[in-house]
Design a protein around this nucleic acid. Structure first.
Lengths: 231, 231
DNA sequence: GAGTGGTCTAGACCACAAT
DNA sequence: TTGTGGTCTAGACCACTCC
């Protein structure tokens, strides 16, 4: 019924920090001290403190002590989920039109981002994702053929491109940016946007095995879509 | 020189998963099995497996075993940093104009979000943050007087409102959303935007001690600012 | 009942900081 | 030299699941 000792110690440490009793940079009691105070083995204290350090609430300095971490406050995390998941989670039904699926030659910026020569062949897919029939996201995706040779043979009305890529090329790293943009005319029409209506653009480059594998532009109607999260 | 045992075990487990040797839902060897294989104590194996489970790469089921976790959604994390930090980190110099600092009455939506009655007094600050003199962010912030009684007496040209709030009201939780918006005329002028140019709007509500403490609208010029990150 | 993970102990040796 | 954290051991007891 009672919480584990390491959990009680975590809670106690957290409450001290939240109460402002220890401020940024302050040293907290050492492991042996805490072990005595809570009458537990040092390994138990170690687990509590190590987990708080992993969560960036404490900073450990071998040989000198454990300190309250600088408030990384202003650091906020946004979670961006698969569009299909997100729509279904809200009780909507997800569908997708494949508007384009074929091969193109890499333009300069794209080639640089993917680390290939200009003019190299790339697979391109353009999908319009819908939530209950309403346009929710336009997905433009360029894929390195070497990373997913079977890409063009997929049926992306069932299973999104990113779900397919996750299977065939387990991703190691993602780099992305979020921008507010006025969409091109074709994008505006696809998303059924009014004139002058802005888009959220999520641009994402995924890496697999140390090499870039795919680049995507995800266009969201600014008026009907938000990226949300909490910390 | 050699990596710790728990780290070697983590790496080994990860490589098995990445190699596709174990797929989603597969059971991995038990702790005693791994301990024998690596000739270490079970506690050492436990740490390795526990850390991978905390990272959602494995799922543990007490009594039955440890399994490869379902492929992590399409989850991506965006880190949003303090504007002043971010500017300085890029080698720019941060400055801020205080455009407004005073008391207002809570309007309906705001009151609901902060959990107070409509018409309740709130502190309001409006700051224009600049990077090397160029407008980089317009910050509108509403603060519950109870959460930061000394708010109106601060000099926000040195030290941002959020830095001050972190000190006096250590935050417990943040809820936010990111939108693409066309700015109001006053915002457009403050950020020196062209007509029709969209903004990234980061809307954030912070909680301290279980109660809402402050709400902020952070307006970024869409053409000159991006939220970026990696995973 | 046998096997699993969850937790904990009471020691230990080490590299490293401060002094 | 003393104190710190980093790691590891070889046991232990428990609650739980599966057979």
């Amino acid at each position: 019924m009672e919480a584990p000792a390491y959990q009680r110690i975590k809670t106690w440490l957290l409450s001290r920090i939240e109460a402002g009793e220890w401020r940024e940079g302050d040293r907290i009691p050492s492991e042996p001290e805490l072990a005595r105070r809570f009458k537990v083995a040092r390994m138990t204290v170690n687990r509590a403190v190590r987990e708080l350090a992993a969560a960036h609430l404490l900073v450990r300095a071998p040989g000198s002590g454990t300190f309250v971490a600088p408030p990384r406050h202003e650091a906020t995390l946004v979670e961006i989920r698969s569009i299909a998941d997100e729509i279904r989670e809200r009780g909507g039904s997800h569908s997708a039109d494949v508007r384009r699926l074929g091969e193109v030659r890499a333009e300069k910026a794209l080639a640089a981002e993917l680390g290939v020569a200009e003019g190299e062949p790339l697979f391109l897919s353009v999908l319009l994702h819908r939530a209950d029939g309403l346009p929710a996201q336009l997905e433009e995706r360029w894929v390195l053929p070497a990373a997913a040779p079977g890409y063009l043979g997929q049926d992306f009305t069932h299973g999104t491109p990113s779900e397919y890529l996750m299977r065939v090329a387990p991703l190691a790293r993602v780099v992305y940016r979020i921008e507010a943009r006025l969409p091109a005319e074709a994008t505006r029409e696809a998303l059924a946007l009014g004139p002058g209506e802005p888009c959220l653009l999520l641009h994402r480059c995924t890496f697999s095995g140390g090499r870039a594998a795919s680049v995507a532009n995800l266009w969201y109607p600014g008026s009907r879509y938000r990226l949300t999260g909490h910390l």
